[in-house]
Simulated scan of single mutants.
Amino acid sequence: MSTPHVVVVMGVTGTGKTTIGPLVAEALGVPYAEGDDFHPPANIAKMSAGTPLDDADRWPWLDAIGQWALSRAGKGGVVSSSALKRAYRDRLRAVAPDAVFLHLTGDRELIERRMTERKGHFMPTKLLDSQFATLQPLEDDEAGVSVDVSGSPEEITERAVAALRRLDA
């Protein structure tokens, strides 16, 4: 990218936001922030218990991510956030209007398999269906790109960085 955007890596749980986000940040030469770190303890407890978050749970989390993105305006950065609904992305853009979105997409079977293989994450596989039910993909009027998550992390990162660079072309 020719301008230092803040990239919000979005997608359902298990798409690789935590893996791909830092790799994209490294490729772009900007810092990375893990979106899960912005969750208040009550949200983590709720998800760990297998209970999906509701919008009231998400607003403070999204506001915190938006504030981080705003602090990186003009300098660039990458942050992960599921940002599943248009309303969530709108809320992030209300705080950080120059944010662009990298939507990691993939086949449900692939994502579920990856979720069962990961260790130490609070999000149980049983919440994957609620994530897909909530997901509203990027719309044509939203600044961002969608990238399929099949392949190695390096292949996904290469596709993501190339797609992000095309945003400014």
Rank of each mutant, 00 (worst) to 15 (best):
P137I: 14
L164D: 09
E154V: 15
A33Y: 02
D57P: 15
R89H: 07
Q136S: 01
I65N: 03
H39M: 06
D55V: 13
P41N: 09
R93N: 11
D57M: 11
A83T: 13
A49K: 02
L92H: 04
R86I: 15
L128Y: 02
F101H: 06
L70P: 12
T13M: 13
G21T: 01
S81L: 06
A56T: 15
A45V: 11
G77A: 00
T125V: 15
I44F: 02
K17W: 11
V145G: 09
R108Q: 11
F132L: 15
N43Q: 03
A42T: 12
R91E: 10
L110V: 14
T19A: 07
R159I: 13
V161E: 05
R165T: 13
A94Q: 00
A83H: 04
F101I: 14
T116A: 07
L164V: 13
T3K: 08
P137A: 08
T19K: 04
P153N: 07
P31D: 02
L104I: 14
Q131G: 12
D129P: 05
K126C: 06
V161G: 10
I156H: 00
T15N: 09
V30E: 04
L92Q: 09
M10V: 11
S81I: 13
P41M: 06
I20F: 03
G21L: 03
D54C: 05
P40Y: 02
T116R: 12
L167V: 13
A163H: 10
K17D: 07
V9L: 01
R114S: 03
P40N: 05
E34G: 06
F122E: 03
V161A: 04
L128T: 14
P52S: 08
F122I: 14
Q131H: 15
V24A: 05
W61P: 06
T18V: 06
P124V: 14
E142R: 01
Q131A: 01
G120D: 05
A96Q: 10
I156K: 04
